[in-house]
């Protein structure tokens, strides 16, 4: 998980995934959240912010496809102060901005650390995309892929880079399973077959106690512990 980078030349600012800031301090852990449109990425980000904001210095980068709606949703929900939420524009290609050409996102995370830092954690949310979208290791340290039961219970079986290789797979909206005829047992077995030992979380953010995101929170805490070690 840790990016083991070495300086090939001077000028740390040019090395995108360097673990240290130009001033020598360790930078924030960056976790990417990707997945299809409507699977609950923004809702998961909002729930993570609510769960972690009192104990961690947090910020969020959103990658909307053609609006600022995700950023505006987070602002409206007041999950973080506005200066901790930045939107990146992606030119109709959300996967390009998180994988092939990460420069705009790198600038967004660096500007957040400059302006509101030091930060412990930056969540980078991808625009809703397809099953092949993954984050570059130059941009994030770990990635979560969010799918939902209503998108079809055959998605884990279909695999693809997001489902297969993400550090955490989240199957969201489990409360809808009986209504859309999705078989959670089958989804779990297919995910296990695709991902071997990589973890999978089934969650519903509808839970009365607002604690539906607790398993993802626990996973994020593990990543933070490993990052700080």
């Amino acid at each position: 998980m840790h990016l083991d980078h070495h300086h090939s030349h001077d000028g740390a600012a040019a090395v995108s995934a360097d673990a240290h800031r130009p001033d020598g301090r360790r930078r924030a852990l960056r976790i990417g959240l990707g997945g299809p449109v409507g699977s609950g990425k923004t809702a998961t980000v909002a729930a993570l912010c609510r769960a972690l904001r009192d104990e961690l210095a947090l910020a969020v980068v959103t990658n909307d496809i053609y609006t600022r709606e995700d950023a505006e949703f987070l602002l409206r929900e007041a999950v973080l102060p506005p200066e901790r939420i930045t939107a990146v524009e992606t030119g109709a290609c959300p996967h390009t901005a998180i994988r092939d050409d990460i420069s705009a996102n790198l600038e967004a995370v660096e500007d957040l650390e400059d302006e509101v830092g030091p930060l412990d954690l930056i969540l980078v949310e991808s625009g809703g995309d397809n099953l092949t979208a993954t984050f570059s290791k130059g941009l994030v340290d770990a990635q979560i892929f969010v799918i939902d039961v209503a998108g079809g219970d055959d998605i884990p079986r279909k695999g693809g880079p997001g489902v297969t290789t993400a550090d955490l797979l989240v199957v969201n909206k489990t409360d809808l399973a009986p209504h859309v005829g999705s078989d959670l047992g089958r989804m779990a077995a297919d995910a296990k077959a695709q991902r071997a030992e990589l973890p999978v979380v089934f969650q519903s953010l509808r839970a009365e106690d607002g604690d539906g995101v607790k398993d993802v929170v626990a996973w994020v805490r593990e990543q933070l512990t490993a990052w700080a070690a």
Binding site: H9, D10, G11, A13, A14, V15, S16, S103, A104, L106, E107
Partner: peptide, 24 residues
């Protein structure tokens, strides 16, 4: 300027140069 900053990052990583560093 946004695009200049992004190109600067890519160029410094690709062709390290004191002149690019100075402009950055």
């Amino acid at each position: 300027r946004k695009l200049g900053r992004q190109l600067m990052r890519a160029a410094r990583a690709t062709w390290p140069s004191p002149e690019l560093d100075a402009l950055a």
